[in-house]
Design a protein around this nucleic acid. Structure first.
Lengths: 242, 242
DNA sequence: TCAAAAGTGCAACGACCGTTGTACTTCAGG
DNA sequence: CCTGAAGTACAACGGTCGTTGCACTTTTGA
């Protein structure tokens, strides 16, 4: 009772035939006109879902935010709210994942490892960049919070798709970067690069997330810097090769 | 539009006169019969709010879980759903806070600091105990996740009350324990005991929270142990006095 | 035992919401 | 200009939900 796929459904909407047209053109070149509009709707809906959550987000509000009528919304997403939600999750997750991986690989490019004397400065910059993403994409992180909270109500398929499209690749990219730093002799990964990257994320973001309520409260810049510097310092004490 | 205090309210329920009777007997001795029942209702409602979230949790479900009629629920909480929610938050937060502080002060009692050779074992035991609380009080942590997600919709007063009654004292107790360890010469807090305790919590719980979805997924015991041992090892590399 | 207090079942009200059908408008492309 | 597709406005249906009033029953305490 109360899962995301089973809200009000007067005539048992068949949620099949969802990704039929999509697969036809996703292979060839640029996206269809239809796909562009779907992405635009998903982008606009992200804010509403993030602010209100799935249950509170009303179709009217979603359509209004996308500047379309509720009827056209159903034309694009015959599966209704549930299908739109899934589209929003995959769309915003892909966007933020790309941004995160870009920050990680530009600052921790395993091909051009930073010099030892620059390591701390680079890690601090990376942590700042990752934290800044939280304020750059507030709707996305609000949505992720709702996913965490309503994990029981999100269809497992959506949950799995999100993990694969979002945090998964980020963690892998981070682990690869850590391996690069280890191979360059800058850090000692103590046998587990994945754990090292998790620990970096934990030290860099946990305290920030805690005090800023996931980026909602605008922590003063000075304090953010203090927390990040402290986290990076602890990470280096634990992982820097001496 | 859509805050927790302003759901369906046919006749503009006056949410005043909430803590009138309460203050009369909260000073003197043991709790009133009424207060006991209120606590029982809050305890039962915690599961529903945690599983469903505020929006989805229906009055009928809440009353059923507490084995009372909806009408009696309104007799105890004239403020309706919103007031009940606040009661649940403060009640469960206090319960879990006490449990957490008990674990912290029993294992890191600053009066009887552990011997250096036991430090790692004790910290691992503490981390295990703290993680186990997540599975011991699943309803509470589910509720906290919803609070995080719906922070915008929770009245600031409730949010503040929760922080003061829940995480606040825990962090302070942890910082005090860290100071004790530092005074005993076991760790070097690097000038910021609060940050050290935050880093311990981050290293001990972040990875667990990540992989178990806040304790929902029952991570195999072996993996939990591995993650915790890795986190404590990293913490000691960063903070143990050598 | 008996009166007061506490609790219950039931019905109803008003409001909101997801979804769909239908008739009407807008607009691009031949 | 014409035609077909895309979009919209509007109304309606079935449903859920929070809340309250009322008559009735159960429990409690002296």
């Amino acid at each position: 009772m109360g899962s995301i796929g089973e809200g009000r459904t007067p005539k048992a909407t068949s949620a099949k035939a969802a990704s039929a047209k999509a697969a036809s053109a996703v292979r060839g070149g640029n996206p269809t006109r239809k796909q562009e509009k779907e992405a635009a709707i998903a982008s606009a809906s992200c804010g509403v879902f993030g602010r209100e959550g799935y249950a509170r987000a009303s179709i009217d509000a979603l359509a209004a935010e996308a500047d379309i009528s509720t009827r056209t919304l159903y034309n694009y997403f015959p599966g209704g709210k549930a299908q739109l939600f899934q589209a929003v999750v995959t769309w915003t997750s892909a966007e933020v994942r790309d941004a995160q991986i870009a920050r990680i690989s530009s600052l921790l490019d395993p091909a051009r490892p930073p010099r030892p004397e620059d390591l701390e400065r680079d890690l601090v910059a990376l942590a700042h960049a990752l934290v800044r993403l939280m304020t750059d994409y507030p709707d996305h992180f609000a949505l992720v919070r709702h996913i965490h909270a309503e994990a029981d109500h999100v269809p497992p398929e959506v949950l799995q798709a999100w993990k694969e499209a979002g945090p998964g690749p980020v963690i892998r990219a981070f682990a690869k970067a850590m391996t690069g730093l280890a191979d360059a002799g800058l850090i000692d990964v103590h046998g587990d690069a994945a754990m090292a990257s998790t620990h970096f994320m934990a030290l860099a973001s946990h305290a920030i997330v805690q005090s800023t309520h996931y980026g909602v409260v605008p922590l003063p810049e000075a304090e953010t810097d203090h927390v990040i510097k402290g986290g990076v310092a602890a990470f280096l004490r634990a992982y820097q090769r001496r």
